[in-house]
Amino acid sequence: MNRVPINLNVNGKATRSDVEPRQLLVHFLRDTLGLTGTHVGCDTSQCGACTVHVDGEAVKSCTLFAVQADGASVTTIEGLAHEGRLHALQEGFWEMHGLQCGFCTPGMIMSAADLLAHEPDPSEEQIRHALEGNFCRCTGYHNIVRAVRHAAEANARGASSEPVVAADD
């Protein structure tokens, strides 16, 4: 099949690739770039496991062809920690036991990050509404709600998160 060149900035790094026009962004990220933190949980764009940020907005990366993202900046879960520190949501999910099997977690965190960017102090109802496009089969969402609140409160306090290196130990 013919291939089309695309230019993307992924997690702050410029990449240039030739892709099949039918390749979905999620498969480009996973298979071509090896960024396997973004997951695929369905084939009908419901589960949200594949959520990434495209030009700052949460997008289900299974709903987009890679070619449609040409020229865009993409952030995946691997690029969320900033200057060696966990993102407040990564910290919140860890602190509040907001994950069990971890499969929904990257997408869940990316969606929640979008929420906090638009609404820094969301109510339980706002959190539940914002995350209704992300399925979690393990947690019953209880601790996910707490995790997002934890992050919102930490942000409000200006608290700094744990360094990623410590987390990697």
Binding site: L35, T36, W94, T105, P106, D168
Partner: peptide, 21 residues
């Protein structure tokens, strides 16, 4: 004790290793 999970760092940073990965 409610000890924070030691497996979480890999999952929250997208570095878990599932079969499909």
């Amino acid at each position: 004790k409610p000890v924070k999970r030691v497996e979480d760092p890999r999952f929250i940073t997208g570095t878990g290793h599932y079969t499909e990965d």
